[in-house]
């Protein structure tokens, strides 16, 4: 297991490099929230989820809904790395004619289940998927990844209420709680705490973890499968911009991409030199 975690750590590091390079190239996109969520996505795509990049619509797959759709670059680099589409496609992120839309679009991108990005809507779709899978007696699970700023949307609580009402134990909600939103600190804009208590009072089994501790993420996701009769909410405390020191905990890097000057420094933070070789 220890070796496996080291492998996943290395995978997360290389995906962070892909995120930084992709966003530097596109000159448009959301850096901070992509870097805060990537450890969770790494564990989901490379450890937890049953999926087949060569057969994206395989009926037996687990589903991932990135409700905080602005972190699409994080999902895109993982999908490309898994082989859903060529890594070359990342250069067309947010470009006319490319399939990698600014926010996830199931119509064009293999591996994307639904359209997200208008905050608050993804969890409802995850609830619908979980209901549908249960009707089919499927053992597939649904993972919905939310932001903490997104919890300000009322629809999240409608959906959580429904997930609990319908006892959706095939649904796991992950909250990327990086504490920041576009205008500043979540706590100052519109406080959402206590997040764990809120999900708990809405009927979820709640665990709170360090969202960059891969072992903790693995354990939380593994444990979630043994919870019956209620959905699980994993409140993952994260750092916006994680991995690039000068991006970390800065709301200003919510929707800003690395400049030409910042790129080499960002790659250096990630243990990579600018020309692509290992440091």
């Amino acid at each position: 297991m220890k070796a496996r975690i080291e492998e996943l750590k290395e995978k997360a590091r290389s995906l962070r490099i892909d995120i930084v390079r992709t966003l530097h190239h596109s000159k448009s996109g959301h850096t901070g929230g992509s870097l805060s969520v990537i450890d969770m996505l790494t564990v989901l795509y490379y450890y937890k989820m049953n999926h087949d990049p060569k057969n994206p619509k395989w009926a037996g797959r687990d589903r991932l809904v990135l409700s905080k759709g602005h972190a699409a670059p994080a999902q895109y680099v993982a999908l490309a790395d898994c082989g859903y589409f060529p890594k070359e496609d990342l250069k067309m992120l947010r470009q006319l004619g490319g399939h990698l839309q600014g926010h996830p679009d199931s119509k064009g991108t293999p591996g994307i289940e639904v359209c997200t990005g208008s905050l608050g809507q993804g969890l409802s779709m995850a609830v619908g998927m979980a209901l549908g899978l249960r009707l089919d007696s499927s053992s597939s699970r649904v993972y919905a990844v939310l932001g903490d700023g997104e919890l300000q949307e009322g629809q999240i609580w409608e959906a959580t209420m429904a997930a609990s009402h319908y006892k959706l134990d095939n649904l796991c909600i992950l909250i990327d709680a990086n504490g920041l939103q576009i205008d500043g600190e979540v706590a100052k804009i519109m406080g959402v705490e206590p997040v764990a208590d809120k999900f708990s009072s809405f009927g979820c089994h709640v665990v709170e973890i360090d969202g960059h501790d891969l072992q903790a993420i693995i354990k939380a996701l593994d444990d979630a499968e043994s919870i019956k009769g209620q959905p699980v909410a994993i409140v993952a405390r994260t750092v916006k911009g994680k991995g690039v020191s000068f991006f970390e905990n800065k709301a200003s890097y919510h929707g800003v991409t690395p400049s030409d000057e910042e790129l080499p420094k960002a790659l250096e933070c990630l243990g990579e030199s600018c020309n692509g070789g290992e440091k």
């Binding site: 409802s124 619908g128 549908g132 629809q155 209420m161």
Partner: peptide, 28 residues
């Protein structure tokens, strides 16, 4: 009864849930 979902007085979530059911191959 198994194929009917009363979503309560929460229309936004009802429409989103319907979209999720469609994504799972149902005709909501």
């Amino acid at each position: 009864p198994k194929r009917f979902f009363n979503m309560g007085i929460a229309e936004a979530n009802m429409i989103g849930t319907a979209a999720g059911l469609a994504a799972a191959g149902k005709i909501p």
